[in-house]
Design a protein around this nucleic acid. Structure first.
Lengths: 396, 396
DNA sequence: CATCTTTGTCCTGGGTGTGGAGAAAGTCGG
DNA sequence: CCGACTTTCTCCACACCCAGGACAAAGATG
């Protein structure tokens, strides 16, 4: 199949494409209500989009009391590839142009195996999705990596947990391999975009999205746009100090948040608790699996294990302390917590909320929801699809 | 004199006005180089601006190797009023349309006397400036207040140090009294705008501006625009916790940054040191004045007083700790420190830098200047003038 | 003084968008 | 089933805008 080559020629067309992406099929009249264009102008722009093949007619819409309108939708054969490279696993998904996930694969893999090995796996997963008939090719791909990215070039910079990736031309290389446009971003930013597009953060302009996986990061959304900072490292809150005399961190400092609470730290603490006999529940799980993860702690807590609950509470306090500072500084309209430890659920949320509501001033916390992400592992891939669609659905 | 009533009719005119504001008088040809408009279009827009009286012809420009161009400048009789209401004093200044300060008055006054008394004083200072021949009236006024503001309405909300101001319609009231458009914002945000317009922060897109006066606040600039947060309280970093077992703060919590380091805290610490005999220098000053301020500490430190230097170092460490967190989170391209304690100067700067460079990751600190503001007390009033000019120099 | 460069003005032709007229398609009440 | 009203869509004329060329004015250069 011939893939999408056309791009919107002007801001109006880009606007219309995004409306169709976010709102699904729409009648011409409905589109007219959402943009301030004269009927004639709208008709012209829609016709041009139809010519390019980016959108197609899709039957008649329901009547709104008069003549029925023709429905318009994004071309149903458009396909985006969303790739979320985590520290220990890879998520790959295909979406249509409306960013609905049509197929989703996960594969455990250590990012430290390096870009070549990882992308080999990514391409093989993408091929598998293609082979299953979900796509005949991709019109664009978004890639998330677990570290800072020089965004315009799509190149990781000085990523602490990804040795071997520094300066690797991810965008360039994958664009070659896949034969379509590619955009690269930090995985946390993509999660933020995902939750904004299809999750809890719809209709919020300024918000924070804290992702707790192997490490800890924070997506910052300002006015509906991801804020990346001067060098692309904004949101790197894992190394904020929470305890001046705290634990040694891999970064060389002491008392970093990440050293005290993260997927990795939690697993280590849980194993310690198990070995020291403080938690029979965790000890049993350690016995069974040979190692523990955040999921084990979640399960133990759900079973009422006191040590596990303590770990979560303590971690939540630490995290809450940092989030409280960020809330004071940033005054977001929403805080989303997601990532691998979402399983810790409401126990975690409770301690975070306690800290934030206690420490931050009422004006900032007054109407501030602090919630768990609702998309889980699909947030990243949806965000990735959204990233590339934002790029493709922008003028020239 | 008839005051300015006209406003730019479209984005092009607004653009031109801002160029003239920021770049001073300019030839038509130079303007043409800076905007992507055809010569004819540019001529038309400039002619229209001349008609409205917002800009005037101003002689001939130097030749650039051919026919000399006619100079254009903003109407020289335009006047903006910049008002910076601090916790303990009021700054009022008149500027021309290029935001050059033509006259500047300062008057000590406690903001807690309430809006009515304060604005009486502001109006009297403004009248004094008018009487001295610097202005015959004002085309717009910007007001800074030391607390959060609901920006669109120009109304202070829940300001901790300004009892009696909550909900007072500052914008509305002053607009009535002055007979011109008024915009209201947090004083810290105005300082950030001031340093951006005429100070150290020119040409930086994303930066932080930390103001240490009676309290502590932080102006956040994202992509050249001030970020105010969901409820207008963004940048309120005074109550970030720096020490879990720290001092009691007026806000009811313990260990807030502001309780450990701010103009007020520093003065108190200095008085303690003086009374406890730890610092003869400070004791002498306390004896002479009956009380101490941050300026006394600065003077004592300059004279080599060890206790004063200790206070500054300790405060700088605390502040640096918080700034380090914010740098990790926000990844700014510049950090400016200003406000009343700027006199502490390089001693303060040194401890802040030490903390930040030690705690934050290299990618964020790599090319991060941390500097003192260079405008001092005029930053606020220039920022105020800039606020209202941004408003007036925007389309319809 | 001739030539070149820069600047400013005028004008024309093409493109764009607005809004009215009217046809097409449907709903609704009798 | 029919007539009146609504909504949607297309067509078209008119005004406006704007880019860019031609040309005149003003100065630099040698």
């Amino acid at each position: 199949m011939r893939r999408m080559t056309a791009r919107p020629a002007n801001a109006h067309q880009a606007r219309l494409l995004r409306l169709l992406r976010d709102g699904g099929p729409n009648s011409r009249a409905q589109l007219g209500d959402q943009v301030e264009l004269s009927r004639s102008k709208l008709a012209v722009e829609v016709d041009r989009l139809l010519e390019t093949g980016l959108v197609v007619a899709d039957g008649l819409a329901a009547s709104r009391g008069g003549r029925r309108s023709h429905n318009i939708r994004l071309a149903p054969e458009l396909r985006f590839l969303g790739v979320d490279i985590g520290a220990t696993s890879i998520d790959v998904a295909v979406t249509n142009a409306e960013l609905e996930v049509l197929g989703h694969l996960n594969h455990p893999m250590d990012v430290r195996e390096g870009p070549v090995a990882v992308f080999e796996q990514v391409l093989s997963l993408a091929a598998k999705l293609r082979a299953s008939g979900l796509a005949e090719g991709f019109d664009g791909a978004g890639i998330g990596v677990p570290g800072p990215v020089r965004f315009p070039e799509g190149v990781p910079v000085a990523p602490p947990i990804m040795p071997g990736w520094d300066g690797f031309p991810v965008r360039e290389a994958l664009s070659q391999e896949l034969g379509c446009p590619v955009m690269v971003d930090n995985d946390v930013n993509l999660m933020a975009m995902g939750e904004q597009h299809a999750g809890v953060a719809r209709s919020v302009g300024d918000y924070l999205c804290v992702k707790i996986g192997t490490g800890i990061g924070c997506g910052i959304v300002v006015g509906g746009e991801v804020y990346r900072g001067t060098t692309g490292s904004a949101g790197d809150i894992g190394h904020i100090r929470v305890d001046p005399d705290g634990r040694a961190c891999a970064c060389g400092n002491k008392g970093c948040l990440e050293a005290h609470f993260s997927g990795a730290a939690l697993a280590r603490d849980a194993e310690d608790a198990a070995r020291e006999g403080r938690s029979p529940e965790l000890a049993a799980r350690l016995e069974a699996a040979g190692r523990l993860t955040a999921a084990d702690v979640a399960a133990a807590a759900a079973a009422g294990d006191a040590a596990a609950l303590d770990l979560i509470r303590e971690g939540g306090n630490r995290l809450g302390q940092v989030i409280a500072s960020l809330v004071s500084f940033f005054n977001p309209g929403l805080v989303v917590i997601g990532g691998g430890v979402t399983g810790l659920g409401h126990n975690l949320l409770a301690s975070v909320r306690t800290q934030v509501y206690k420490q931050s001033l009422p004006l900032a916390t007054g109407n501030l929801p602090i919630v768990l992400g609702e998309l889980g592992p699909t947030a990243g891939v949806i965000g990735a699809a959204r990233l590339i669609s934002d790029h493709l659905f922008s003028p020239v």
